[in-house]
């Protein structure tokens, strides 16, 4: 049963990803990308990586995609922005992502209503991850924090130039 759920989630991920790279409207592509990330998060759940599945949904499908959406809305504020908004409100554009999300939701229901064994043998929980992260991988955590600081400074610098084009 687990393997059937895996194949279904993998199918959803591949379909959504191929729709991402073929859409012409960036917002539609972004919605399919969110579906693809949710499907990958479900695969993580099936593999016993619960902490990574949570991070995938919260950080990737949540924070990073909202950042994309902000930038798309900032760039799409031209004269055609209103027409595009009106086009986005048409319900038939939501059928594809809603169907794929419905498949994932059904899988989630099957998993947690006990029709399938939710806990694989090699589950790695958050406690093990935390112990390793602040033990042998402490230097990697420091490097990641320096990387995030560099990204923060870089993003701030780039958008600061945006406000003062003559500088």
């Amino acid at each position: 049963m687990t393997i059937l759920l895996f194949y279904l989630a993998a199918f959803v991920a591949v379909i959504a990803t191929s729709l991402v790279i073929t859409r012409t409207n960036a917002v539609h592509a972004l919605i399919y990308l969110i579906v693809s990330l949710l499907a990958t998060g479900f695969v993580f759940l099936l593999l016993g990586a619960y902490f990574a599945a949570l991070l995938e949904v919260i950080v990737y499908a949540g924070a990073v995609m909202v950042l994309f959406l902000f930038v798309l809305m900032m760039l799409g504020l031209g004269r055609d922005g209103e027409g595009r908004e009106r086009e986005l409100l048409q319900p038939h554009l939501w059928y594809g992502p809603a169907f794929l999300c419905g498949v994932l939701l059904g899988e989630w229901g099957i998993l947690f209503l006990g029709w399938s064994q939710p806990f694989p043998l090699h589950a790695v929980d958050a406690k093990q991850v935390g112990i390793s992260l602040l033990g042998p991988y402490f230097l990697a955590v420091e490097l990641a924090s320096m990387l995030l600081l560099a990204g923060l400074v870089g993003a701030y610098h780039l958008t600061e130039l945006q406000r003062r084009p003559g500088a």
């Binding site: 990737y60 990073v64 994309f68 900032m74 990387l147 560099a150 990204g151 993003a155 610098h157 958008t159």
Partner: peptide, 14 residues
């Protein structure tokens, strides 16, 4: 990925 998206989207705005 988070750092890359921050810098990349700033670059896109610029």
């Amino acid at each position: 990925a988070a750092a890359e998206v921050g810098v990349g989207l700033g670059l896109a705005l610029q």
